[in-house]
């Protein structure tokens, strides 16, 4: 992620550059890297209708996409890449159905702009299993414990659960409940979800 992806900025005046220059000198101890400002010299004319290019790794595969800046990662996964495992529940960070792993951490794809996922590694429920054909232990545990009814929240629950174990927050049923509270299940399969995570947490050996 080293390129400056400037779609629009207006020319900066010499006076502003001077101010920035002095601002940075004044702040020198705070700043590790202080290149000259000249880099930001973009055109004013860019067209908002023009798509932006984004490169994302999803489940180990590189994707090059041309997207509207407004698109969320969730919509990019579902509508552009065709991976419909991540679900749209609330679209506002309130339910966890859209949970994916980004650079190994559980995050909400509905509150992530696809353009800001540039260069990042995304894992969805489709990519959780390793090679070899075996189900990930968390998926198997959800089946063993019947940890779903309608299944709508399940991809988010499973990815969140994998992270919960990796973060070291699956030590007890109470801890699992607290650290899984970001995943709402309208079918209230909670007791079975907690049991599944307890089982998988031992098998994952992490």
């Amino acid at each position: 992620m080293t390129d400056t992806r400037d779609i629009c900025t207006s020319p900066s005046t010499p006076r502003r550059r001077f101010l920035i220059g002095s601002a940075l000198t004044g702040a020198a101890p705070l700043i590790a890297r202080s290149e000259p400002v000249a880099a930001a010299e973009p055109a004013d004319t860019s067209d908002l209708r023009k798509p932006t290019s984004v490169d994302i790794h999803v489940n180990g595969r590189p994707f090059h996409l041309e997207l509207d800046t407004r698109l969320t990662l969730l919509d990019a996964l579902r509508e552009e890449i065709g991976l419909t495992g991540a679900k749209k529940g609330c679209d506002h960070g309130q339910c966890g159905a859209c949970t994916v792993l980004i650079d190994g951490r559980r995050e909400l794809s509905c509150l992530t702009l696809a353009v800001s996922a540039q260069g990042r590694d995304v894992v969805t429920i489709e990519g959780l299993d390793g090679g070899g054909g075996d189900l990930h232990p968390m998926k198997q545990a959800f089946i063993d414990h019947d940890a779903f009814q309608c299944g709508y929240c399940t991809p988010g629950q499973i990815l969140s659960a994998v992270s919960c174990v990796r973060e070291g927050h699956a030590g007890s049923p109470e801890e699992i409940r607290e650290y899984m509270s970001g995943n709402i299940c309208r079918c209230a399969a909670y007791p079975n979800i907690v049991a599944a995570i307890s089982q998988a947490s031992e098998q994952m050996g992490e």
Partner: peptide
């Protein structure tokens, strides 16, 4: 959501320039 320009400067200096820019129109 209203359309917007997106930029991701790599240096702080550039960020501060972008952050104070008024969009022309």
């Amino acid at each position: 959501m209203q359309p917007f320009h997106y930029s991701r400067p790599v240096s702080l200096a550039e960020t501060i320039v972008s952050g104070t820019q008024k969009h022309s129109r």
